[in-house]
Design a protein around this nucleic acid. Structure first.
Lengths: 336, 336
DNA sequence: CTGAAAGCGCTTACAG
DNA sequence: CTGAAAGCGCTTACAG
């Protein structure tokens, strides 16, 4: 029914080898043959079968991408970048949503292995020992985005979380704030947790402000936790003038708490977020936040992975620049 | 290096046919053979090669999904549902981001064809004549999500846009509003445009309110357009008390305009959105809106597609229920 | 219950 | 410049 390479070979009066050659732009045929073959391909509406090609090639031109949750803006922004670059380079991407439960990742890894993907990108996920083992057995390149690892041979691309948190806190200090709380994400989270708390602390220290651990509270990166923790913080110390949240969702949760409790943002409370999701500029007042270039992170990760696939070599990690987006949630305090 | 079915056959002292049978849970071997084979599979760490299987099977257990823009919450919510159900059923999903330019869709269709996907889901996209032709040639099942078509043989799953817009407008009327404007999306858009405008008009008519076309303005579904159009509407008639926007982003744009111009929402202006994106509940005040069950839309689309792939038959379209989420942006007007 | 063999649709030495 | 043939790793009649 659907024509194969044999059919076009027959109709062109050449061998399948020759058809294959013109299809792949190799050399070893006259221009005349080429024209003939191209013409019958056109006529028959022939499309090569990538599965067959992959079987003999041992290359599928397919990348696997693992996300804890594809449906959030953070993940989908990265996915967009990954997909775009991959497509430009002739690769397709298989998406995997792992967060539902822990061993789903292992199941996905198996699927990706069976489907013979050329490489894998892990987004926002740490590499557990058990993943590393499977990955080793698969023997294909892996890159991490918005995550990191000490495991040499696995490059990562991310922002400098510590520095970004430092900058956010330092900005608040520069605007005259002294009593600054922090709403952290999950306690101990090695990427978006600990480093951001450290950056916050360091900024205080460098400005001669005493760190008070009671002013650091831990949520789960969700809106609800930001709101709840803001309440907790304020009930313990109503003189807090600024808060740095480890992600926009929590920052907006904090704003919600304040605004719903008659506390004006930024007049009575300044807030700085982290991520620069679209919603941060849709809020009223719009949220001052740390920008993470999601799309670029995705593109870079994709580029690194493809480079590894095609060269067989290793590629260095990248720290991508962040920036602070000044909007309307921070008030400059006069210091007398 | 990596073991193949031949290797396990040899080591188990059986034929590859037998190994294949136990692998696929067919019958035709003793329990003893089965145990032996399973054991050596375990020992060798054998994993079947899905590419090879696909080549002889003519089934890839892979679905292609086309989105105009994967990075927005709308698309990624649907993707989440699609992916989740597909995975449960043993299918993988290849994502395609088409919106960059028009003929990207055609290019993707070709990739999906070469990669021999078992079926395709189009999200939020109309089927152009040229797509239909290619799709016909591919001869695989297709389903539409958040879109529709008259083309029999292609089921769709969506909300009743006309009805949902009707409900939104009717709600505003029920709260005592009479002077209600509408911020529509792209003029003439056959899904999210025209039907929603019609629903809006019908609700007015059914309540004895004269439709005034000057009160219907057309944007592009983006935040900025919502804000700009709200300004335009209000400059022409400052007595508008309510506005229905065809998507949350525009609704929030409208809120932004109002709040930034000293117009209180909902005290001076009520607004109803459409979609129920996460940000609608993060706004202050939180947005009253029409809920579209994105995740479910995705799951249902996925389910339909897999059913078609596996039965070879056709499946009916579905209209999924929407609902109105009452939050804080609509004020009940006293009518004297 | 089991195996030999053809076939899926390509690519790629190898030989000429 | 060109072709015959082996091979990629499976599945599936067919025969026993």
């Amino acid at each position: 029914m659907v024509p194969t390479i044999r059919d076009v070979a027959k109709k062109s009066n050449v061998s399948v080898a020759t058809v294959s050659r013109v299809l792949n732009g190799l050399n070893g045929y006259s221009d005349k043959t080429k024209q003939k073959v191209l013409k019958t391909i056109e006529e028959m509406g022939y499309q090569p079968n990538a599965i067959a090609r992959s079987l003999s090639n041992k290359r599928t031109q397919t990348l696997g991408v693992m996300f804890p949750d594809v449906s959030n803006e953070f993940s989908s922004g990265i996915l967009h970048g990954i997909e775009e670059l991959a497509h430009d380079r002739g690769y397709s991407v298989l998406v995997c949503n792992t967060a539902v439960d822990g061993n789903r990742t292992l199941k996905y890894l198996q699927v990706l292995r069976e489907k013979q993907v050329d490489g894998i990108i892990f987004s926002s996920e740490m590499l557990k020992e058990e993943y590393i083992q499977v990955l080793d057995a698969m023997n294909i390149p892996v890159v991490l985005v918005s995550s990191e690892t000490k495991y040499s041979g696995i490059p990562y691309v991310k922002v400098d979380d510590r520095m970004a948190a430092y900058d956010a806190t330092n900005y608040l200090i520069g605007q005259g704030h002294r009593n600054i709380a922090m709403i952290s994400g999950t306690k101990g989270d090695p990427i978006a947790g600990t480093p951001r708390v450290e950056g916050y602390k360091q900024a205080l220290v460098d400005n001669g402000i005493t760190v008070n651990d009671a002013k650091i509270v831990y949520g789960n990166f969700r809106f609800e936790s930001g709101s709840r923790l803001m309440g907790q913080l304020l009930s313990e110390d109503s003189s807090i003038t600024g808060v740095f949240a480890a992600c926009d969702e929590m920052a907006i949760g904090a704003m919600n708490y304040a605004m719903n409790n008659g506390i004006s943002v930024p007049d009575q409370l300044s807030v700085v977020g982290y991520d620069n999701l679209k919603l941060s500029e849709m809020m009223v007042p719009s949220l001052t936040t740390i920008h993470q270039p999601l799309y670029d992170l995705g593109r870079i990760a994709s580029e690194k992975l493809i480079a590894m696939v095609e060269t067989g070599g290793i590629v260095p990690s990248s720290i991508v620049p962040h920036s602070l987006i000044e909007r309307q949630t921070v008030k400059a305090l006069k210091t007398y």
